[in-house]
Amino acid sequence: SEIVKHAEEALERGEFVRIEHNGRVIEIRNEEALEELRRWVEK
C-alpha cells in the first residue's frame, strides 16, 4: 500500500510519520509500529 511504503521510506531516513486513517491517528516511529500499520491497512 502507498501508506505503508511512505512510512517505510520515512523510517529508513530516520523520520517518523503520523498517519490519519478512518478517523484514527497512528504514529510510525519503529518497525513495531510499521507492522501495526500493515495489519491496520489490510483490514
Score class of each variant (00 low, 15 high):
E2C: 14
E15A: 07
I28C: 03
V25D: 03
R13S: 05
K43G: 13
E27P: 03
R39H: 12
G14E: 04
I3H: 05
H6A: 15
G23L: 02
R18V: 15
I3G: 03
E42H: 09
R29Q: 08
H21F: 15
W40N: 03
W40P: 02
V17S: 05
K43W: 14
R29E: 09
L37G: 00
R39T: 11
E8P: 00
K5F: 06
I28P: 00
S1I: 13
I26Y: 14
I19S: 01
V41Q: 04
L34H: 00
G14K: 05
E15P: 00
E15F: 07
F16P: 06
R38P: 01
I28A: 01
H6T: 11
A33N: 13
E42Y: 11
L37R: 00
E31W: 15
N30W: 03
H6K: 15
E31V: 13
L34I: 07
R39K: 15
N22R: 08
R18Q: 09
A33F: 05
E31T: 12
G23E: 03
L11A: 01
R38K: 12
S1Q: 14
R24H: 11
E9C: 06
E2M: 13
V25R: 03
V25A: 04
K5D: 04
K5R: 13
G23H: 07
E42P: 01
R13Y: 02
N30L: 03
E32W: 11
V41D: 02
R13C: 04
R24W: 14
R18M: 12
R29C: 15
E12L: 15
N22I: 06
R13D: 02
L34M: 06
E8V: 11
E2P: 07
R24P: 00
G23I: 00
E27I: 14
A7I: 09
I28K: 00
E12P: 02
L37M: 03
E15T: 08
V25Y: 09
E27W: 14
E12Q: 15
R24Q: 10
R29A: 11
K43P: 06
V17T: 07
E32Y: 09
R18Y: 11
I19Y: 08
R38L: 06
E9F: 06
L37Y: 06
L37P: 00
H6W: 15
E31M: 14
N22E: 12
N22Y: 12
E36A: 11
F16E: 05
V17E: 03
R38T: 04
A33I: 06
I26C: 08
A10R: 06
L11C: 04
E20N: 08
G14Y: 03
R38Q: 05
N30G: 08
L11K: 01
E42K: 09
V25N: 04
E31S: 12
E12I: 13
V41N: 03
E35R: 08
I26W: 15
V4A: 04
I28Q: 00
G14N: 05
A33E: 15
I3R: 03
R39L: 13
N22M: 14
I26E: 01
R24E: 08
L34S: 00
V17M: 11
S1R: 14
S1V: 12
N30M: 02
H21K: 05
L11N: 01
A7Q: 00
G14F: 04
I26K: 01
E9S: 10
A10C: 09
N30Q: 02
N30D: 14
E36V: 09
K43F: 14
G14S: 04
I26Q: 02
E2A: 12
N30F: 03
V4I: 15
V17A: 08
E9P: 00
E2V: 10
L37W: 04
E27A: 07
L37A: 02
V17N: 02
N22L: 12
